[in-house]
Design a protein around this nucleic acid. Structure first.
Lengths: 234, 234
DNA sequence: ACCTGAACACCGTTCAAGT
DNA sequence: ACCTGAACACCGTTCAAGT
């Protein structure tokens, strides 16, 4: 068994007493634990140090500053989500699954979203996803003229979708059940003043529906298809 | 001249010596100044108090906590951007302009984006924009079944677009010139390893192009059209 | 009514020191 | 080499007090 990976360095107790010297992987691993258990806002150098049973300054041996820590954690999330690691036969299905996984990763890792925003340069993991998606498009004869447009569209739709849904989900404690989530969102729109917002109250049900996973996947397929159809009529 | 508005309470000096008692509008107004002049990360209760020439605790008279302050500032940004206050004849042009203004508002107000994310409930201003857009769609016979889908699509594309572009813009100091911005983004992709990321390096130019304002507006029109075309073939 | 001062429980980060 | 303690310059927020 050569080389323990980051994934295998999970610890159950809150201190680390036993183990050898700290590693970057161990630090990032624990940081992700803290985020999932206590939320992003609780991910601080000091809190992380405490969780590792170590002085705050020990962290700085493996991470140059907080921004570097955040970057590392985000890439770890992306790699754990294995966004492109699946093999549907139909390429539309593959694309739908890929972006659904990306959205889910951004939504379920509590507060992964705030980590994404404000990052100027993409991490290696994010770049790899981009690369894989463009390769699939190219394999279906969608080249430079259209591929970039389609890719950007898919990416932005996914990010925007997560950006809108993320805060809503976090608000209501654990809204894992999609049906209950949809119901709550609809209720929020229905509670608005019908005089001030007639359209919003009227569209409440459909607005809530369009945030569901199935609607998301359908829209991803729709984006790819309508763009490739466009391409065939010069 | 009855009633000074928030907009008219601009101050040129950093202290407020003269003026009467603090108002919520004055606080939010100053907060927006701080954001624009020093960036979001510098918007703190203490910094704001200093800018107003007042003790930190005086702020709490007009704002219940920092989250409330942030919410107020975001709504102020939305209202200043007057996203829906224009009148193109063609409804596609109107929609394109509306969402372009929204994107621009999110991008130019330095760090408006971080304010958006993490907000569970939309402010009155944001809700009004939604209402207006849905009304325009309804006026062109796009009702509940499709309107919500189209609206969500437009909204998410806009938000995602701003989310991706925002950090890039902020990174390179002042990248107001869109040509220069596009060139830099292309360069970033071209600098990647051609062996590790063949697609990304190959698509560099197109990927950068698709982030421009014109490409954005075109895509907004495209989204509306392809969705309404869909609607006509049962 | 409106504002202030002092204090509490936190941050990220630097620096000099320990083993 | 790897870690610690003490300190600096900050945060948001509460509480009791001033005018």
């Amino acid at each position: 068994m050569p080389g323990a990976t980051a994934a295998s360095s999970k610890r159950t107790s809150r201190a680390r007493d036993e183990a050898g010297p700290l590693s970057r992987d161990a630090v990032l691993d624990r940081a992700l634990d803290v985020i999932n258990q206590e939320g992003v806002e609780r991910l601080t150098i000091r809190r992380l140090a405490e969780a590792l049973g170590v002085s705050p300054m020990a962290i700085y041996r493996h991470v140059s500053n907080k921004a570097d820590l955040v970057d590392g954690v985000f890439d770890l999330i992306m790699s754990r989500a294995s966004v492109t690691d699946h093999d549907e036969d139909d390429w539309l299905d593959w694309l739908a699954e890929t972006f659904l996984r990306m959205r889910t990763a951004l939504l379920t890792q509590r507060g992964a979203l705030p980590l994404t925003m404000g990052r100027a340069s993409l991490g290696v993991q994010a770049l790899s996803v981009m690369e894989d998606v463009l390769a699939v498009l190219a394999k279906h004869d969608i080249g430079p003229p259209d591929a970039a447009r389609i890719f950007n569209h898919l990416m932005m739709y996914t990010l925007g979708s997560a950006a809108i849904l993320g805060p809503i989900i976090q608000q209501d404690a654990e809204l894992a059940d999609p049906g209950e989530r949809t119901r709550r969102i609809r209720a929020n729109f229905e509670l608005l003043s019908g005089k001030q917002f007639p359209q919003l109250t009227q569209h409440a049900s459909e607005l809530a529906q369009s945030l569901r996973d199935t609607a998301f996947s359908d829209e991803i397929r729709h984006i790819v298809m309508s763009a490739s159809v466009e391409r065939l009529k010069p």
